[in-house]
Write a protein that binds this DNA or RNA. Structure first.
Lengths: 265, 265
DNA sequence: ATAGATTGTTCCATTATTTGGAACTGAATT
DNA sequence: AATTCAGTTCCAAATAATGGAACAATCTAT
């Protein structure tokens, strides 16, 4: 049934929009296109209501309904996202610095921002092979097991950090994934001291990274840059050496933001 | 089925959602982030109403409000789009055929779908240099001046075509852009006969392409594949030769759809 | 083929949300 | 200090969303 697991996280105050977003989330997070009845049981809404809601989403192009009555994410989302990405100021500022960092290390470079409890990857510069485009960009990953995520968390004041972690559901992706707030907190203090973070195969087995935090003057904006690669090629010693160039890249990006965005607020 | 006998074009029946989408459109189509007052004048809504609507969009992450009170597209759109793209069945089916076509010609290959009066580019395989990711993917381009667009239009029955063109605003991007439905219609008949379409620098000066149409059995789904490149390298003679491989790729993709999606619809 | 179950769609009185005018706050400008 | 301008909050009235129930269209198992 509507086994929502832990607690009611849906205390949104966005009225009609909030209800529709829950549906959009359901459909876009599903592994395969959903039938009307699938959504019915997941959303727990009356049939009539759900039918109208889905119709509206389809009419607006946010969902698509195929001939077999299956609902899939709509292509209008792509159009919105393309614009959102192309004009994103932070990404535009960071772009050249990411490319430079990739040149120096030869490995894949990521740029991410903290949104809620997730890191959203805004850009990626890969080494050899051509990019499979949305492979990582736009992806929302957990903050507690990614380099960029932990770097961003290390910037938060203790109280906000506690609040944020209280809502996190710790999924163990690998043997190295932090399983509780306690062990994560200890590492985050360390990260705050040294100014960079590692991902020791915590999100994906065989993948390591080193990341440095990026923040705005008022600490409203939290994100990071990282260098990622396979563990067989990236020893922990090598990663530790790369902490310096990653921090420098982060510094350059912050400088770029200061200049471009001005001394506001 | 649109049993809409009378031609109420713009009257969307999506209630609250429709109004919010207008705002999202405004903000994502703007050249720069908009202030509250900018949106106020564009949207023509009462202040109180607009304020609540924008707040809801921000709270849901569809818009972002920076410290200077400027509204920009939200990053949640990226997350939605990444999923929408990654799981898109049509794109997954077409992917290998696009790569093959790129190998044969060495030029950039595009995959697009007709949505309303626009072509939305779903994928892109580039020749040499690494892809700048959202450069084209997700982009919505006019149907009347792109190869994929004209190929898709050539599949429409006369009446639907007339209806669609009635709503098109013919912007002349270059000297070669069709300026009226009349000249476009003539070319579309030709395209329908021969089974492929050219873009003779109609959208962007110096850029040519040849495209072949793709459709589902019931002609509900219309799209196309194209090979695009600079005019100095792609003579019209060369493009004409490539009509064959492009049509073959389109055929393979349609075959893939038939197998994967079954004889339904 | 037929009955019965399942799935999807439409209707409409009730209920809840949205609306929009107006009054309020705070910052920038004169 | 006075005046505009930009943004926010409030609440009765207008409007849209809700959800139960009836209806229609498919599927499934005799």
């Amino acid at each position: 049934m509507n086994a929502n697991g832990d607690g009611m996280a849906q205390a949104r105050e966005t009225g009609t929009l909030g209800k529709l977003m829950v549906l959009l989330d359901l459909v876009t997070h599903a592994d395969a296109p959903l039938r009307f009845t699938d959504i019915l049981s997941l959303a727990g809404q009356p049939r009539g209501t759900l039918h109208r809601q889905l119709s509206h989403l389809v009419e607006e192009g946010l969902l698509e309904l195929d001939g077999d009555g299956r609902y899939a994410p709509g292509l209008r989302l792509l159009d919105f996202a393309a614009r959102s990405w192309a004009r994103n100021e932070f990404r535009l500022i960071a772009e050249p610095h990411l490319a430079a960092l990739q040149q120096v290390t030869g490995e894949t470079v990521h740029l991410g921002v903290l949104r809620g409890q997730s890191i959203i990857y805004l850009d990626k510069v890969e080494g050899r092979q051509p990019v499979r485009m949305y492979s990582q960009i736009g992806n929302a990953s957990p903050c507690y097991c990614t380099g960029v995520g932990k770097a961003a968390l290390s910037l938060l004041p203790a109280e906000s950090l506690a609040d944020l972690l209280a809502g996190v559901n710790f999924t163990r992706f690998t043997a190295a994934t932090h399983a509780s707030p306690a062990s994560l907190l200890a590492e985050i203090h360390e990260i705050a001291d040294q100014g960079y973070a590692f991902d020791r195969e915590e999100h994906e087995a065989g993948i390591r990274c080193v990341a440095a935090p990026i923040w705005s003057e008022d600490r409203t904006f939290l994100g990071g840059v990282s260098i990622t690669g396979p563990a067989y090629r990236l020893s922990m010693e090598l990663l530790a050496q790369w902490a310096v160039p990653v921090q420098q890249a982060a510094g350059s990006i912050m400088e770029g933001m200061r200049i471009r965005l001005g001394p506001r607020r």
